[in-house]
Each structure stands twice: as structure tokens, then as C-alpha cells.
Write a protein that binds this DNA or RNA. Structure first.
Length: 538
RNA sequence: GAGCUCGUAGCUCAGUAGGUAGAGCAACGCCCUUUUAAGGCGUGGGUCCUGGGUUCGAGCCCCAGCGAGCUCACCA
């Protein structure tokens, strides 16, 4: 490791040398430097569950006749020596257990080993359980086994690792020093398990479809590109599994789901990471109304499995994931129409291009001469952008979706289903039979952001081909997120896709909601970070 | 990509008005057999993110860069 940039400083280098010397002393005491096994009778959480605080009522004597002997292992997170005795705290599985080591119990060799231990070391102990004067469950150690040494200094023991950047870059330290961080990822695991249980119980098959695709489809986003050398083939990392999953429904898998990563070449924010986990599922013989019901059930089920309740606290607001509101996109715009923007729109304003234009023009004027409050400025900029797009003959449907995002989205804190989307922003959805400008699609929102997106799948190959062609035209006009043509997908539809509804749910965002995390990076173990400047020592 | 804020010991943070760099934890030595953010005495530890500039003098002021957080833009 000499000359390597593992070390941040001379302090760390010399500490490493010191610990190396200690390790040699430990070996001289007859311990292995890097043993590969320890037979524990219990984990720390098991010990706590069986003899921890809940059982304290039975009195300290409960542990004395007969004595309870345990063998446990863990990482030393606190160590206090007191002459010929000492206490240390072992951490395992996110829980802690105190141990008490005294010279007359472990002998000269054992105590010599104890004195060579440092914060962060892994050890195993055997001994019997007792309670200290203050009532803390403690292992009275009889034998100590050295397991592994921490060669670097742990973060400050009271505050833990607080530097956000370090927590993301060195998650391995964050996880064992900040147990709250650990808990988030335990809940993430439970979320995935609950999702799978939900779909497995309903006869869905879990599948895996390509993440390297020749046509990156199924969403409006810019893909990452890569290259296969042997086949000399340019490939895209997938932006969605959608088109493959529907091919599977054509193939006769009536109910499929996939939980895996999508990759989108876009900026990062508290709600976006370039790779993120998406659940997509498809159900034949169902439509988007069926999925609304399924979604409400699903989210409530997962919340109960993970948190034991549908209530979650997000950004200081209590959200009940068991109580849902349903609004059409147009209703939502009207409901959340900002007072500053003047009279609320009429339904007719959404069906006529000229009326829509004057609606925006009016709102723009209203918000331009108000007090210079931030909301006025933000709204004015937003209306201005929509107006500019309207002037540049952006399709009405797209403008309506933009308007919805401007005035309504951030208000959707409690679980809300927004349905009836414009066809212009939904190239893969089935049109409303009564009005082809609108499709059978919904998105659902919680905490002010979008969690999922669902629709009755377009299964008419002729119409699908037409929509792709339209997207190609958008692309030619500079929209580099417009959908690519996927001839093979159209061919699959031509073999006959049964009436099907499908849905995608952003799992990172769901976990944010369930854990009260304000940033997506707090629910991703290793979020994408910029390159670190080269360490000067290397 | 834009704006705002931040970067001081391994970690958590102070740093007055521009005048020789501070504390706690961690580390090292000694004392201590029921402590628990153990305690007591002592010691060591700094490219003040990097590079320029202003100044007699810069952690502090100015410029540029790097990294991070937040807000916005794009999107899910």
C-alpha cells in the first residue's frame, strides 16, 4: 500500500503502520491475523431479541440461574479500558451489544489481546449474559477471538460521518456508522420483497429483458450508448423495458413484471439518478381502470409490509398511502389553478388551440405585473415558456401536459391518480374510443413528484406505426427524446397483442416516500458522483 | 447547463476587525476491575480544496478552477 492513494494523509499512513504493529503483537499472542471463521451461537440482534430490554421486567436474576452462555461476533464501535477491566460495544446487524472484559476472567493473554483492540476491529467473544448496575445487557467475556483489524480511523463516534459527499462516496463507512442510513436500505430490501410477493400472489411471472438494446424505446429520454466489439454493434442501455415486456405478452405470458435498472442520460437532481430502478408490469385482458385499483392496493400493501402502516412522513407532511384521489389532468389544472393567474380555465380552453393560447396569454399577463414574489416570477416564466411553445405550433396536447406540470404537479402531496392524458405525449397508449385526442393513461403522484405511469396499451399495429412515424418527425424537428422507430415491435403487435394494461413505478422514489428521504441519493447505495480530484500523494 | 451556499487535523466543528492555526472525538504514553458521548494527567497531529492576485501581512478580500449541497432547467 506504500505510495497508494488509499491514505488521505500522513496521519492515516502512520496510524496504518501502528495498527500493523499491533496486528503483529496480536499474532504473537497466538491469534490469527486474518482468521476465516467464527462459530457464533447467536447474532447480536438475536441476543437482544431474546434477552434485551423487553425482558428486563423479569429482573436481573433472570439471567443468573442458570447462566446463559453465548458466542457472538461484531465490530467494536466503542471501547473503554479501566485498568484491569474494560467495556466495549459490539455492533452486528445494525444492533449493539456491550461486552465486559476483565483480567481475572479472560487471563493474561486474553487481556493483552483486549488492550491491543481498536475501534472498528472485528472480534468474537464467548461468555455469559448479565446486566450491569445501570441495567444494560452485557456479555461477561470468558474468551476473546480476534477476527479482523480496522487499519483506518473511524469517524467521530458521536456524530458519525456527517459529510454528505463522504457518506455517498464511502457508503461502506456510512452504513456502519449511521444506522439510520442502514435502515433505509433494509427498508429498500423489504420494499422489493413486498413488491415481488404482491405480483407473485397474483400470478405474475418475473422476467428479465435486455438492458442493452439496439433501439432504446419505451420512454421519452436520451439513452447512453455503448458498443459490442465482437459483433461490431452499437448498443443503447435501455431507458425502459416496456417494448420487450409487451412482446412477452404477445408470446403468451399474460402477466409479467420486471424490476431492474433503467439508464437515462440526463441531469441529476434530488429526484433523478442516471441509473434508477423501475418496476414494470403488464396484465393482459385489463385496462387502465383495472390498474388504478391495483396500484392503490399495491402501494398500501407495500407500505404496510415495510412500515407496518400506510402513514408515512415526508418533508414534514403526513401522507396516507391508503387514501387516494383521482382527477383527470384537466380537472387537476383547474383545481390547482393559481390565484395569481386570473380566472380558472374552462374545459373548452383545452380543446381549442386558439382558446388555449389566449388562456396562457392571459395568465402570463396576470403574473407579470404582480408583486415580485418568487411564485409570480416562477409562474410567469413557466407560462412564458408554454406561450412560446404555443407560438411555435407545439401540439395542443403537449402544451396541456406542460401546463399540468407547471400548475398542478408540485401540489400533489397526498396520493393522487391523474388520468386522461393527451395523445401527443403518449405514443404507446390506447386512445379513448370517444375522443382520439386523449388516451387511456394515468400517472400517480405522491409527495409532489411522479411515482408511476400506466396505460391501456396500444395494440393496433397500424396506429402504432403511425405514432412512431410521428415521433420520427418530432425527432427530425430537434426533439432528441422522441421515440425511435421499432419495426420489430410493430411486427410483434401485428401477431396480436391481447388487450393489455401496463404500468411502470419508480422504485427509488417509492423508497424515498416510505423512508422519508428527501434525496434519491439517500436511497441509492452508490449514487453517481463526479470524478474525485487526484490525491496528491499518488 | 444556470443561480445560491459550502470546502479548516482522520472525523465533528470554532476561527472575532486581514496580524504566528483552535476545541471535542479519534491517536500515542501513564493511572483506573460495573463503564456507557467513562474519567484524570501528559504528548503528537494542518498544502486552511487547488492555482493566481491585492496587501508590509490572507483561513478571512478579489479572480479562475475542482468537488459537494440546494434551487432551477431536462426528465421518471
Amino acid at each position: 500500500m506504500e505510495g497508494s492513494s488509499v491514505f488521505d494523509s500522513e496521519f492515516e499512513r502512520s496510524l496504518f503502520d501502528l495498527r500493523k504493529a499491533k496486528l503483529e503483537e496480536i499474532v504473537k499472542l497466538g491469534q490469527a491475523a486474518y482468521p476465516n471463521h467464527f462459530s457464533a451461537s447467536h447474532t447480536v440482534p438475536e441476543v437482544r431479541a431474546q434477552w434485551g430490554e423487553a425482558q428486563f421486567d423479569s429482573g436481573p436474576e433472570a439471567l443468573e440461574a442458570p447462566r446463559v452462555t453465548v458466542a457472538v461476533a461484531g465490530r467494536i464501535m466503542a471501547i473503554r479500558a479501566q485498568g484491569k477491566a474494560g467495556f466495549a460495544t459490539l455492533q452486528q446487524g445494525g444492533q449493539r451489544l456491550q461486552i465486559y472484559v476483565r483480567l481475572d476472567a479472560v487471563g493474561e493473554q486474553g487481556f493483552a489481546l483486549y488492550k491491543l483492540l481498536d475501534m472498528g476491529d472485528h472480534i468474537g467473544v464467548t461468555g455469559y449474559l448479565f446486566r450491569t448496575r445501570t441495567g444494560e445487557l452485557t456479555v461477561h467475556v470468558e474468551t476473546l477471538t480476534f477476527l479482523a483489524k480496522a487499519m483506518l480511523a473511524l469517524p467521530e463516534k458521536f456524530h458519525g460521518l456527517a459529510d454528505v459527499e463522504l457518506r455517498y462516496r464511502q457508503r461502506y463507512v456510512d452504513l456502519f456508522t449511521n444506522l439510520d442510513a442502514r435502515e433505509v436500505f433494509v427498508k429498500r430490501g423489504k420494499t422489493l420483497k413486498a413488491l415481488r410477493q404482491f405480483f407473485d400472489e397474483r400470478g405474475f411471472l418475473e422476467v428479465e429483458t435486455p438492458m442493452m438494446q439496439q433501439v432504446a424505446g419505451g420512454a421519452a429520454a436520451r439513452p447512453f450508448t455503448t458498443h459490442h466489439n465482437a459483433l461490431d454493434l452499437d448498443l443503447f442501455l435501455r431507458i425502459a423495458p416496456e417494448l420487450y415486456l409487451k412482446r412477452l405478452v404477445v408470446g403468451g405470458f399474460d402477466r409479467v413484471y420486471e424490476i431492474n435498472r433503467n439508464f437515462r442520460n440526463e441531469g441529476v437532481s434530488t429526484q433523478h439518478n442516471p441509473e434508477f430502478t423501475m418496476l414494470e408490469f403488464y396484465q393482459a385482458y385489463a385496462n387502465y381502470h383495472d390498474l388504478m385499483m391495483l396500484t392503490e392496493e399495491l402501494i398500501a400493501f407495500v407500505a404496510k409490509e415495510v412500515n407496518g402502516t400506510t402513514i408515512t412522513n415526508f418533508g414534514g407532511v403526513e401522507i396516507d398511502l391508503g387514501k387516494w384521489t383521482r382527477l383527470t389532468m384537466r380537472e387537476a389544472i383547474i383545481k390547482w389553478w393559481p390565484e395569481e393567474a386570473g380566472p380558472v380555465p374552462a374545459i373548452a380552453d383545452f380543446s381549442d388551440n386558439a382558446l388555449f393560447g389566449s388562456l396562457i396569454e392571459r395568465a402570463m399577463a396576470k403574473t407579470s405585473n404582480g408583486p415580485m414574489a418568487i411564485s409570480y416570477t416562477m409562474l410567469n416564466i413557466g407560462f412564458g415558456r408554454i406561450y412560446w411553445n404555443w407560438k411555435n405550433s407545439t401540439p395542443l396536447g403537449k402544451l396541456i401536459a406542460e401546463l399540468f406540470e407547471l400548475v398542478a404537479e408540485s401540489n400533489l402531496i397526498q396520493p393522487t391518480i391523474i388520468y386522461e392524458f393527451p395523445t401527443a405525449v403518449s405514443p404507446l397508449s390506447k386512445q379513448n374510443p370517444d375522443n382520439p385526442d386523449w388516451v387511456e393513461r394515468f400517472e400517480f403522484y405522491c409527495g409532489g413528484f411522479e411515482l408511476g405511469n400506466a396505460f391501456s396499451e396500444l395494440n393496433d399495429p397500424v396506429e402504432q406505426h403511425k405514432r412512431f412515424a410521428q415521433q420520427l418527425e418530432d425527432r427530425a424537428h430537434g426533439d432528441d427524446e422522441a421515440h425511435q422507430m421499432d419495426e420489430d415491435y410493430v411486427r410483434a403487435l401485428a401477431y396480436g397483442l391481447p388487450p393489455t394494461a401496463g404500468e411502470g413505478i419508480g422504485i427509488d422514489r417509492l423508497v424515498m416516500l416510505l423512508t422519508g428521504s428527501k434525496s434519491i441519493r439517500d436511497v441509492i447505495l452508490f449514487p453517481l458522483m463526479r470524478k474525485q480530484p487526484l490525491a496528491s500523494s499518488s
